[in-house]
């Protein structure tokens, strides 16, 4: 029983970490309708920034979020404006996807050039110390990630539901042509949304870097899982990404213990295939908006 509870706790903590990465991905997909294959490399860039700031000026890794979040916001916004937007009227929308794949490879190789293939360890300032929660033990940093994921998901939902800008973002996603007729600058909304999605993963970077060693390919591992989560939760659904992440975290932890740690990913991607076949709209999925056709 003790072991089982510990596995559940590990799974939930891992789920919180996945959620923080998947939220930005699902936001960008749901609003801009672009599958951002460079999302993992955004995480990698954020983690290197956290590493450089903590080792360079000796601040607490969480404090680096104050710089990493705005930098990633600008990075995402510029990506949309300079890379994705010029391709919006391309004959085939898939060209945007190839562009993000290209960006992903370029960033990975740039990191390899600058930092080499060695891992970079961000000082953890005691975040790897264990704390006891009833019968289970978890790392302090994991608990913060989990709480931050809840905060981020709730904050984003409130922003989209209650603010003028949030409503304008949802309106643009639901019917772009009509949004333009309401006086909404759709291009600005896309740039803003891409920025917010990247800022979310920047926020995650500052939390994840103290627990995981940073390397040029760190993003690849996390982003593949994040894609599974986004599909499981329903493309574009923020609550879906959160609960999908918890489910995948639990599946990962349970299958790692009961089936074998080598087979964890096989189980996760097996589930991915089953969802695609049985319920392609995902757990929280609404119909995919048909209004991405420019008027």
């Amino acid at each position: 029983m003790q072991t089982f509870l510990q596995i559940i706790a590990n799974g939930l903590m891992l789920g919180g970490l996945f959620a923080i990465i998947a939220v930005g991905l699902t936001l960008i997909f749901g609003i801009v309708k672009v599958v951002n294959f460079a999302h993992g490399e955004f995480l990698m860039v954020g983690m290197y920034l956290t590493y450089l700031l903590t080792t360079g000026i000796g601040v607490h890794p969480y404090a680096t979020a104050a710089a990493v979040v705005p930098i990633l916001f600008v990075f995402g916004a510029v990506t949309q404006r300079l890379l994705i937007q010029p391709l919006m009227h391309a004959r085939d929308e898939h060209i945007q996807i190839f562009a993000t794949v290209g960006l992903s490879t370029a960033l990975m190789n740039l990191a390899l050039l600058i930092f080499g293939a060695d891992i970079a360890n961000t000082p953890n300032h005691g975040l790897r110390s264990q704390i006891h929660l009833g019968p289970v033990r978890i790392l302090e940093g994991q608990l913060w990630i989990f709480l931050a994921a809840i905060l981020l998901v709730t904050g984003l939902q409130l922003f989209l539901a209650r603010t003028n800008t949030g409503r304008a973002i949802r309106a643009t996603a639901q019917n772009r042509a009509a949004a333009r007729l309401m006086g909404i600058n759709d291009r600005f909304i896309y740039v803003l949304t891409f920025g917010i999605g990247a800022a979310c993963v920047g926020f995650g970077s500052a939390l994840i870097a103290p627990l995981y060693p940073t390397s040029p390919t760190i993003g690849t591992y996390f982003v593949l899982i994040a894609f599974v989560i986004v599909v499981l939760g329903g493309l574009g659904s923020i609550p879906g990404a959160f609960f999908g992440a918890l489910i995948i975290g639990l599946v990962d932890a349970l299958s790692g213990f009961y089936i074998g740690s080598d087979l964890r990913e096989a189980v996760v991607f097996g589930i991915f295939l089953v969802i695609l076949i049985l319920k392609p709209s995902g757990l929280f999925g609404t119909r995919v908006s048909q209004s991405h056709v420019s008027p």
Binding site: R167, R170, N175, A177, A178, L181, T286
Partner: peptide, 23 residues
């Protein structure tokens, strides 16, 4: 516009508020 072009997943109130997006 022709064909209404409402925001389908928004309430009537939110649709009307979107109309007032202009400065």
């Amino acid at each position: 516009p022709e064909g209404r072009q409402l925001f389908p997943d928004m309430s009537v109130r939110e649709n009307l508020l979107m109309g007032a997006h202009r400065r």
